[in-house]
Amino acid sequence: MSEEKRTSQPTQSSSDLDDLERRLEVARNRHKEPDKDEDNGGSLLGMAWRLSTELVVAVLVGAGLGYGLDYLLGTRPWFLLVGLGFGFAAGVMSVFRVAGKMDAENAHIPIGEDMPVTDDDEMD
């Protein structure tokens, strides 16, 4: 009887220790950097708004650069036309790039730069 009592003591304390170990592990994990798994949900309309902005802005920037060159070189309208062409190409490319990013859930943009759906109705 007395022997039983004696052996039960260490098992008791070791289960306490196991418990402590478990709690420590939990605390340590909590303290570590949390895993990031943000999903890449963007509304379709938000995406469309963003893509069209990219396209329009690229065309405008291309045209602006061309216009500037024309102004400097006195070649109007040739660089303006070339700039429009390149601007359109750049726009299409960045649209593909952004769409690809949205598609591939690229890690670089954790949350899509989407606008709320209703926002699109307000402006075009």
């Binding site: 802005v57 690229a58 650069l65 750049a90 726009g91 490319m93």
Partner: peptide, 16 residues
């Protein structure tokens, strides 16, 4: 072809 396009893309960023 690519370099002007890349420059335009780059300059488009602050505009967007």
């Amino acid at each position: 072809i690519i370099i002007p396009i890349e420059i335009i893309s780059f300059l488009s960023r602050p505009v967007t």
